[in-house]
Write a protein that binds this DNA or RNA. Structure first.
Lengths: 214, 214
DNA sequence: GAGGTAACTTACCCAAAGGTCATATCCCTG
DNA sequence: CAGGGATATGACCTTTGGGTAAGTTACCTC
């Protein structure tokens, strides 16, 4: 009588895990690791706290799963863009475009990656290091091309510029979160204008109208 | 006998408050509001927890005092630069230069401002809104000038660009934190090169050598 | 259909941290 | 030099939330 609602509901583990991860991504991405409560996530997912621990071991394990889930989505898209033959600012624009489209239905995914309240050791750090490497490599490649175009190949300059680039993406996504009525396409066009304003010279324009980029 | 170390040590309130705020700025700025512990801050400051509460009322009140302390320092310097007659990218460079010099001995101050784990209502929010307004106004003014130079006066574009600009500053400061051997002057020069790389056209060069900017 | 296993829950434990209380010591003033 | 107020503290209270123990139900296989 005491454990009235106990007992299996016949949902396979893989389904439940995905359901939990999705709820957790939204919570972690919105309020951050430190302020997120496992009980709250469980409630959002419509299940109880011990099930979360049974499947993910700890709050940290759950966050790690979320990080992997989100980062995989983003990293694979960035690699797709990198495989194109665009260079310099145009490649930057195409990358932004892909990111905006992925984040449209789940903008909070982005925050998982830059959460300073997340643990800095253990599985979480390992997962983050793995994806940071993967993404930073792409960014450095793109930024390096851009810097080489103007004859600057100081590695520290490239390093700093890569950091700037990655946080510019972060900032534009954040700005977008505060202006939810703006569509991904409009964001891409806006980024194009901002780059024009900075550089004076206009990069190729086909990105905005290119149907293949949709 | 139980409260052995109790009793005044003759330190005036104002001195203690400054001492506590300084310790708190470092902790809040380093680990963030959520993960910071008041007892830990008290220990760092060399005093006990109840004294913190006696002087600041709550953890939130303490953070609010830190925010005001740090923001005042930065905002007043930005206003100094704004009062100069530089425009566009040169004004941006001068602002960066001032920020780097202020943050050199206490880089964590910067993070107080962008702490997403801080409370979003009450005194903290009020203090942040006050300084956000003050700083954003300056940034928008500078960014607006830059955008006007190239004929873009869409207010949303200016808004997004302002966000980008403010986070670029954040990023460069963060990058600097990871490269402590770099001096403020070197950082300013590096920023100059990055801007050149982005814009193609070179902004006025005197900022780097200008003794008045030191 | 008996039993093993995977899916699920309620009720609880306990450590950490925000916040308070009662008390102790010192300085300043009349 | 008496006492009021400012400065200071150890011990405590209370809430929050990560984590667990033990029990319940359903499905699957033989």
């Amino acid at each position: 009588m005491s454990r009235a609602n106990a007992g299996t509901k016949g949902v396979p583990r893989a389904d439940r895990e995905l359901q939990i991860v999705r709820a957790a991504c939204e919570v972690f991405g919105t309020v951050g690791f430190a302020k997120a409560s496992v009980a709250g996530i469980a409630a959002d997912a419509g299940i109880s706290k011990p099930l979360v621990y049974q499947y993910f071991g700890s709050k940290e394990g759950l966050f790690s799963a979320c990080l992997t889930h989100g980062a995989e989505l983003l990293a694979s898209d960035m690699e797709r863009v990198a495989a194109d033959d665009s260079v310099g600012l145009e490649r930057g624009l195409r990358t932004l475009d892909g990111i905006f489209r992925i984040l449209e239905p789940q903008p909070w995914l982005w925050r998982l990656f830059f959460d300073r309240t997340a643990p800095e050791s253990g599985d979480v750090a390992a997962a983050r290091a793995f994806y940071t490497d993967r993404i930073t490599r792409l960014a450095m490649e793109g930024v390096g091309e851009l810097m080489a175009l103007v004859g600057d190949d100081d590695p520290l300059d490239v390093s700093a510029m890569t950091a700037v680039w990655m946080n510019v993406v972060d900032t534009l996504v954040t700005w977008w979160l505060d202006h939810p009525e703006v569509t991904p396409s409009q964001m891409t066009e806006r980024c194009y204008r901002l780059i024009v304003a900075l550089s004076g010279a206009e990069p190729p324009a086909q990105i905005v109208a290119d149907p293949a980029a949709r």
